[in-house]
């Protein structure tokens, strides 16, 4: 059995301490050790984006990141988006546009979409398509997803005016 070590980090704004095998990935830690099953496991090798989470303001595939590397970092998962006021505007836009079908890809898709808007509030349609390249969806055909994100982009742009 692999060596275990303790990691301390911030998860969705709360301090967390957990003892994990040093070769465990972040996705397994979230799902199996912390019971945070919002983040999904699909390909397990960086191809599909279902496991996308935000680490210190950058999105990564949590199936490829080592849990030990979370030490001192701030992680945000889909569970962290909901506030006392309800759904995050991005989640709401996806619901309003009917952009969610089976929903399996959506935690990753929404985390990545939020990152894109935060990184570039003035993104073009091409930036949006390119930015979601790492998120595979078998159901929606992506168009409703693009429409939902574009709504949020417009809202963000208007709010900034």
């Amino acid at each position: 059995m692999s060596l275990k070590t303790e990691v301390s980090f911030t998860l969705n704004g709360r301090a967390v301490q957990v003892t994990v095998p040093v070769d465990m990935n972040v996705l397994t830690m979230l799902r199996d050790e912390l019971n945070m099953t919002g983040t999904k496991y699909a390909c397990g090798e960086g191809e599909c984006g279902a496991c996308t989470v935000d680490v210190d303001g950058e999105t990564i595939n949590s199936c490829l990141m080592y849990a030990v590397d979370c030490e001192g970092r701030a992680i945000t998962t889909i569970e962290g988006l909901r506030t006392a006021d309800g759904l995050d505007p991005m989640q709401k836009a996806f619901v309003d546009h009917g952009a969610i079908q089976c929903g399996f890809c959506m935690p990753g898709m929404i985390m990545q979409a939020k990152h894109l808007v935060a990184k570039n509030p003035n993104m073009t349609d091409d930036d949006l398509r390119r930015g979601l390249e790492g998120n595979v969806c078998r159901c929606t055909g992506y168009y409703k997803v693009f429409d939902a994100v574009k709504d949020v982009v417009r809202g963000t742009a208007e709010a900034a005016e």
Binding site: G46, G49, T52, I60, N61, L64, Q112, L116, G134
Partner: peptide, 9 residues
């Protein structure tokens, strides 16, 4: 190179 999530890591 890959996708943004891969490029970030």
């Amino acid at each position: 190179f890959a996708s943004m999530q891969i490029r970030n890591a």
